[in-house]
């Protein structure tokens, strides 16, 4: 048991360190996230003001929290669907992964989460700092902070586990680019990347809630902006755990089925 924990801890650290090598990329991400953040502030604040100061539970302060926390999470939550596992399935290297005494799915997700956690430092923290200057609302209860942080972590893991599903579809499809592009287009929209999903018309809100995407980004924001109270926060965390169990279980099943199905091309 202890060795297993140690191996995954090392994988997490390896992912973290790997990401830390790309300094200029981190700076680029920072510029991009800030620019998009300021554009979102302009249009969303105007929307709240046009609605008379409050819209679906968002006033200007909470909308500020929404904008800057969503920008802070953007570098860590996988809303593009690209994964290493997709590449390794395509070129057959995954056969070596199966020889290792590690669970392929758990190892892949752990490494990805390690990279995402690093990204929170150069991309996440500056966004929170900008938000604090430009203006964002704090939740009413101090308990929202630990719950919110837990929710952010769950969101990151859920996004890695869901993007993993796109990757392992490659056991059957070989070329998963089309699926990945569809994931990229749909996930950002339904996760509430450009517009909080509570602004959606009812039918679209139901579609969003029927997908794992809001649990990647929207739920943590609802907790940290204080749009939901403590009871609501616990309910959202419960929903996140359920989604994690769902996509995680599906990923495990697909990995096993894919292993039986795997044909490595070439010799």
């Amino acid at each position: 048991m202890r060795t297993t924990v140690r191996v995954y801890w090392r994988l997490l650290r390896a992912g973290f360190q790997r990401q830390s090598a790309y300094r200029l990329a981190a700076l680029g991400g920072l510029v991009a996230n800030t620019t998009f953040g300021l554009l979102k502030v302009a249009v969303l604040f105007a929307t709240v003001r046009a609605a008379g100061g409050s819209l679906a539970g968002y006033d200007v302060g909470r909308m500020g929290t929404y904008v800057w926390i969503s920008q802070a999470m953007l570098g860590s939550v996988n809303l593009h669907g690209r994964t290493d596992i997709a590449e390794r399935i395509k070129d057959g290297r995954v056969a070596v992964d199966f020889l290792r005494p590690l669970d392929v799915q758990a190892a892949e997700i752990t490494t990805e989460v390690g990279r995402s956690l690093f990204a929170l430092i150069p991309r996440g923290l500056p966004m929170i700092a900008i938000g604090a200057v430009v203006g964002m609302a704090a939740p009413e209860s101090a308990a929202a902070y630990p719950l919110g942080v837990l929710s952010v972590l769950l969101g990151i893991v859920i996004s890695s586990a869901t993007a993993y599903l796109v990757g392992v579809a490659g056991f059957w499809l070989v070329e998963t680019r089309g699926l990945q592009v569809c994931y990229m287009v749909v996930s950002g929209f339904l996760a509430g990347l450009f517009v909080p999903i509570q602004l959606f018309p009812r039918w679209l809100l139901l579609v969003a809630h029927a997908s794992p995407f809001p649990s990647m980004m929207m739920y943590p924001i609802e907790i940290l902006s204080g749009r939901v109270g403590l009871a609501g926060a616990l309910a959202l965390l419960g929903a996140q755990l359920a989604w994690l169990a769902g996509v995680g279980g599906l990923g495990q099943a697909l990995t096993r089925a894919g292993r039986r199905h795997l044909e490595v091309q070439g010799g």
């Binding site: 680029g28 991400g29 991009a32 800030t34 620019t35 998009f36 554009l39």
Partner: peptide
């Protein structure tokens, strides 16, 4: 100049 810092220009092209 940027090579791996492509996101910096993405901010203004896609932004």
């Amino acid at each position: 100049f940027l090579v791996e810092g492509e996101e910096m220009t993405n901010a203004f092209v896609y932004g």
